Simulated scan of single mutants.
Amino acid sequence: MKSSIDPVQNLAELIACPSITPAEGGALTVLEAMLAPLGFSVERPTFGEDGTPDVENLYARRSGNGPHLMFAGHTDVVPVGDAAAWTYPPFSAAIHNGEMYGRGAVDMKGGIACFVAAVGRHLEKHGGLNGSISFVITGDEEGPSINGTGKLLDWAKAKGESWDAAVVGEPTNPEKMGDMMKIGRRGGLSGTIVVHGVQGHVAYPHLADNPIRGLVTLIESLLYPAFDNGTKDFQATNLEFTTIDVGNPAVNVIPAKATATFNIRFNDTWTDETLMAEIHNRLDKAAGRHKLRPGKMAPVNYELTWRNRVSHVFLTHDEKLIGTLTSAVEATTGKRPQLSTSGGTSDARFIKDYCPVVEFGLVGKTMHMVDERVAIADLETLTQIYERFIADFFA
């Protein structure tokens, strides 16, 4: 049990595993070796689906009489980029000036390392738990998120598992430990617009129909006016176009087709159904505008395809979970964390369908960057927060 109570050693062992999504890379094996001596039963189901890579996941539980607390996270990491640009090799877990360097240091092997250490310390002091703790760990959070947490939760529920509360160890603090806790997330929706035109010579535009003109008209309709001004709990809905493609190498040819892909992060003003309807309505109205298409009477010929799965907006209201973790953060850091719904999506979007969920972890300033790193002092602080939270939650 001794090795598991040190978050620095735990993290170094996890960073050393090159678990670039969707590869397990040895990370789940290392985690299992940490949890088994703490009395956890460990299972590692693999899920797959046509067109996606198989992904190995981990479910570990230590059972007791009382409430069931879930800790959720992921051991997969994003690619390192240019490894030569790193100050230290990205899987070396090198320590310099009080910081540990490595891919996944904050996103989010660090959070896992700290929660394991917190559980180990609690068991060392108290000998047991007044309830159950489970680890729900995926290798598919940084990837498509198809063969990960969603299927792992379905699998566990089918085996009879249920949970009273969950903490996701994603890095939530913008600057310093204690800054922020995530109690909800905006929804996410992606789509692709394809405009079909008529190819022709640029000197004879009346014989062609330039799809770029039509695409620009449609794009403007989704960028203005704003979808909303935000709500009490959420920032304003925001749509961004992420790619525009024509695929035309010739400078004197009007192309036949133009494509644009967008992603929209939406608040609780909308459901996915009402937002899809709003987007369709805007595009249909814009398709009939002729400002950029003089002489063209027919509407813009477009297709809209929704991509991937919808991430639904949610907000957690559980007073025990939020209050207990907030108190643990304040008691450890002296700061009361801001309760926020900012940022992107996380696997909390799956967990919210099973139990109340919040997110709290390390400082995320270097996540996904070259020289991703974490302060050694922050690892100890987060471990202390988690340990206090565990004790208070099961008190």
Rank of each mutant, 00 (worst) to 15 (best):
S3Q: 15
I5H: 04
D6S: 04
Q9W: 05
E13Y: 09
E13S: 05
I15C: 11
P22T: 05
L28V: 08
T29S: 11
L35S: 05
P37D: 07
S41N: 13
V42R: 10
D50E: 13
T52G: 15
T52K: 11
Y59T: 03
R61G: 07
G73Y: 03
H74M: 09
D76G: 10
A85H: 11
A85K: 14
W86T: 04
P89E: 12
P89T: 03
P89K: 11
P89N: 12
A93T: 07
A94R: 12
N97Q: 09
Y101K: 15
V106A: 14
I112T: 08
A113E: 02
V116K: 04
A117F: 14
L123W: 00
K125R: 08
G131S: 02
S134A: 15
F135T: 13
E141I: 12
E141T: 07
P144V: 01
S145L: 00
S145D: 01
G148K: 12
T149W: 04
T149A: 08
G150M: 12
K151E: 08
L153W: 05
A158W: 14
K159Q: 04
G160F: 07
A165R: 09
V168A: 09
E175C: 08
E175H: 11
K176C: 14
K176I: 04
M177G: 00
G178E: 04
G178Q: 13
D179A: 12
I183F: 08
G184L: 12
G184H: 13
L189Q: 01
S190R: 01
G191R: 01
T192D: 02
V198I: 10
Q199T: 10
H201G: 00
V202K: 10
D209A: 00
V216I: 15
V216F: 10
V216H: 01
I219S: 03
Y224S: 15
P225R: 10
K232V: 09
D233N: 14
F241V: 02
P249Q: 14
V253Q: 10
P255H: 00
K257E: 09
T259R: 15
A260S: 15
F262R: 08
F262M: 03
D268E: 06
T274H: 06
H280N: 08
H280G: 00
H280K: 11
N281T: 00
K291V: 15
M297G: 09
Y302S: 00
L304R: 04
W306M: 12
K320V: 08
K320Y: 03
S327R: 11
S327L: 06
S327T: 04
S327G: 06
V329A: 02
E330P: 07
A331D: 01
A331C: 07
T332M: 10
K335D: 13
L339A: 12
S342R: 15
G343R: 06
G361R: 15
G364D: 01
K365E: 05
M367K: 07
V370E: 09
A375P: 06
A375M: 02
E380H: 10
T381W: 06
L382F: 02
R388M: 07
